[in-house]
């Protein structure tokens, strides 16, 4: 079973990206859960969402304490939130950032494996909006094998209809531009 924690700000679509990954995994015949950090959500405030994906039935309702993967949608969050908290030793942090690896390690003290992509730039160029939740899924695909691209694209189409094409393009570009280190 793989566990993912997504950090974003209220309104950035972290819950939607969790939903997309989970529904795609379920469509592939796997088992999955996606859920928000339970409670009232305010636009702009730091929030989290969670995903579990497994080949067998998931029998837990615990919160996610030790994620395998952490995905951060907003470049300003690692300075405010300990995004690597509880991360498994062989876990990976996927960041939306325009900083270099050294700068990230230096500024935020993240020691784990890293995947980096400037999703804000990609989303702004491809979608016309700095909303990175679908773009970052490209980085997630590159960094992990949690779900297949076809299933994810299908989930995107279902969710976004005619807007899916742009989101797919942003996702593809992020997939190509993501750099994995450590």
């Amino acid at each position: 079973m793989k566990e993912v924690r997504i950090h974003g700000r209220g309104g950035q679509g972290g819950v939607t990206s969790a939903e997309l990954v989970a529904t795609a995994a379920i469509a592939e015949g796997k088992y999955a859960q996606a859920f928000p950090s339970f409670g009232p959500e305010r636009r702009g405030a730091p929030v989290a969402a969670f995903i579990r994906v497994s080949d067998s039935q998931i029998r837990t309702r615990e919160k996610v304490y030790h994620p395998d993967i952490v995905m951060v949608l907003d470049p300003s969050l690692p300075a405010l939130v300990n995004v690597a908290e509880g991360l498994k030793d062989d876990g990976i942090v996927i960041l939306n950032t325009d900083l270099s690896e050294d700068e990230i390690r230096d500024k935020f003290g993240i020691k784990s494996k890293l995947a980096m992509v400037d999703a804000t730039k990609i989303a702004t160029e491809e979608l016309g909006l700095p909303i990175t939740n679908t773009t970052m899924l490209g980085a997630l695909l590159k960094a992990t094998e949690i779900v297949g691209k076809d299933a994810l694209f299908e989930a995107l189409e279902k969710r976004f209809g005619r807007l899916a094409e742009k989101n797919k393009a942003a996702l593809e570009r992020a997939y190509k531009e993501t750099v994995i280190v450590g």
Binding site: T23, Y31, F35, R61
Partner: peptide, 12 residues
């Protein structure tokens, strides 16, 4: 049904 722990979870 348990609030949030069931009501707000996406699952198969």
């Amino acid at each position: 049904i348990d609030g949030f722990t069931l009501s707000h979870v996406i699952e198969p």
